[in-house]
């Protein structure tokens, strides 16, 4: 419907933004999402290993809860984080409202279930024989974990990329906790590509919104490329 109005050949020769502006919102987008995904990964991988390796009553329930977390509406997460960091909330004294730190918090909450859930599936699908063999060869728990991570590395890479995709494309929570702030000179403080797109669309400038959308896609492609490269590189190394 929107596509009917947009001339499908927006000329990149007349780039409608100042580079300084676009550079700074790209920077904020990457800064927030990469840190959020890194923290989520640090948190999620051990959780996925823990749940994946152990057998306990209610394991299915835990798995179901994690998978449900993948569907958390970002606006709800944004509001919850806002209440937390607001002056009235439990973290009010840290002055985190409308900062990138608050945005990282909300993207962390959004990305963690995705990374946990997908890597849990990957870890669970590693055959028991592999782990048994590692035990049998006298491996410690850490060794067994490393072997499993190695076996499940493609699934885990997919998990991290899915988490990154969730974080960088999300607009609801960063708009609420970040406030979409950019200075008069076009320097972004908490404006990301997604909230900038929202701002352009709000003002009926669909062409420029689409151009920013293309920039966002290119960025995700680039990060995917780099991560896949890193993933396949580390895959050739042996486990010590």
């Amino acid at each position: 419907m929107i596509l009917e109005i947009v001339p499908l050949t927006p000329s990149l020769l007349e780039f409608p933004f100042e580079w300084h502006y676009v550079r700074s919102i790209i920077y904020v987008s990457l800064y927030v999402s990469l840190i959020a995904v890194a923290l989520s990964t640090l948190f999620s991988l051990p959780v996925a290993m823990l749940v994946g390796f152990s057998e306990f009553r209610g394991k299915q329930l835990v798995t179901a809860v994690i998978n449900t977390g993948m569907g958390l509406p970002s606006v709800v997460v944004g509001l919850a984080v806002l209440f937390t960091v607001s002056n009235q909330g439990p973290l009010g004294s840290f002055d985190l409202v409308f900062t990138t730190e608050a945005m990282i918090m909300s993207q962390f909450v959004l990305a963690a279930p995705v990374i946990t859930g997908v890597s849990l599936a990957a870890v669970s699908s590693v055959e028991g024989g592999v782990r048994d063999a590692a035990y049998a060869m006298g491996g410690t728990r850490l060794d067994v974990a490393l072997v499993t991570i190695k076996e499940a590395r493609y699934g885990i890479a997919t998990a991290v990329l899915a988490g990154f995709g969730r974080a960088i494309s999300e607009v609801g929570s960063v708009l609420i906790v970040g406030g979409n702030i950019a200075g008069p000179d076009g320097t972004s403080k908490t404006r990301t590509l997604t909230t900038a797109i929202q701002l352009e669309a709000r003002q009926g400038r669909f062409e420029t919104a689409m151009i920013l959308g293309a920039v966002l896609l290119a960025l995700v492609l680039l990060v995917n490329g780099i991560l896949v490269r890193l993933g396949s590189g580390s895959g050739t190394g042996g486990v010590r």
């Binding site: 923290l39 989520s40 640090l42 948190f43 919850a80 984080v81 209440f83 937390t84 960091v85 909330g89 439990p90 973290l91 730190e101 990282i104 918090m105 962390f108 909450v109």
Partner: peptide, 13 residues
Amino acid sequence: VLAGLGTGVAVGL
């Protein structure tokens, strides 16, 4: 309720 939520996230932050 949010205090519980907050501490979880605060660790990461």
